[in-house]
Amino acid sequence: MDNRTNLDDYLAGLGISDADDVVPLPPAPEVAAPASSAPEAMDEDPRAVLERFLQGLTARIDPTLTITVREGEDALEAEIGGENAGRLAGRDGRTLGAIEVLAYTVLAKQAGRSDLRVRVDVGGFRKRQADTLSRLAERLAVQVAKSGEAHELQPMPAADRRVIHIALKEHPDVTTESVGEGASRRLLIKPRSYEP
């Protein structure tokens, strides 16, 4: 089955088609050329590409949503705001994660910038989630320090693991480690003097 056809069908179901000028993607080449071979793509401002993509996407979902894009320390950061923005996060942030993947792909194709990370937040979802994960990390750190035994969390996305790593980086009694591969990658919180 052709992946491009599946994507085209999915986008058509969302009301996005090739005829729309929101984010014009070039036709897929037979052999993928490196991004650096397209000098006109390199000239386009990555912030403008990301903002245009997100505006096109949100205009079809809820025209009242607002987009703000800024350059962060290590990524382009976009905030989608508005009265109903929080609904765009989806269950457990899955829709938001998909939007980030699409935004990264568009940025790599349109601006030739596959080196830039993209973070998208809707209605403060990521901030609230980071706060919740930080509180969880602190509670688990106390538990691990008291028991002397490591605690392994369920598999979670890299961004969530990163929040916990950062929250416990300076903790005097515990340390963190990511274990596993791919979608099964999870976080291990263990005492600093832990030996399995």
Rank of each mutant, 00 (worst) to 15 (best):
residue 25 L to H: 02
residue 26 P to E: 15
residue 27 P to N: 12
residue 29 P to S: 10
residue 30 E to L: 11
residue 31 V to P: 01
residue 32 A to Q: 12
residue 33 A to L: 13
residue 35 A to D: 05
residue 38 A to I: 04
residue 38 A to T: 09
residue 40 E to G: 02
residue 42 M to I: 02
residue 45 D to P: 05
residue 45 D to I: 07
residue 48 A to F: 03
residue 49 V to H: 13
residue 49 V to F: 07
residue 54 L to R: 01
residue 55 Q to Y: 08
residue 57 L to S: 00
residue 59 A to F: 06
residue 60 R to M: 05
residue 62 D to C: 14
residue 64 T to Y: 00
residue 64 T to C: 00
residue 65 L to A: 03
residue 65 L to R: 05
residue 67 I to Q: 00
residue 69 V to E: 04
residue 69 V to F: 03
residue 72 G to I: 09
residue 72 G to T: 08
residue 72 G to M: 05
residue 73 E to M: 03
residue 74 D to V: 13
residue 75 A to I: 11
residue 77 E to D: 10
residue 81 G to R: 00
residue 84 N to D: 14
residue 84 N to L: 15
residue 85 A to W: 10
residue 87 R to I: 11
residue 91 R to S: 12
residue 91 R to G: 00
residue 93 G to Y: 12
residue 94 R to V: 13
residue 98 A to I: 00
residue 98 A to K: 00
residue 99 I to H: 02
residue 100 E to M: 13
residue 100 E to R: 09
residue 102 L to M: 15
residue 103 A to W: 04
residue 104 Y to E: 06
residue 104 Y to G: 15
residue 105 T to H: 01
residue 106 V to D: 01
residue 107 L to P: 10
residue 109 K to E: 13
residue 109 K to A: 10
residue 111 A to C: 01
residue 112 G to S: 08
residue 115 D to A: 09
residue 116 L to G: 09
residue 118 V to T: 09
residue 119 R to E: 09
residue 120 V to C: 04
residue 120 V to Y: 11
residue 121 D to E: 12
residue 122 V to I: 09
residue 123 G to T: 06
residue 126 R to H: 13
residue 127 K to H: 11
residue 127 K to I: 12
residue 127 K to Y: 11
residue 128 R to W: 09
residue 130 A to T: 05
residue 132 T to W: 07
residue 134 S to N: 08
residue 137 A to I: 10
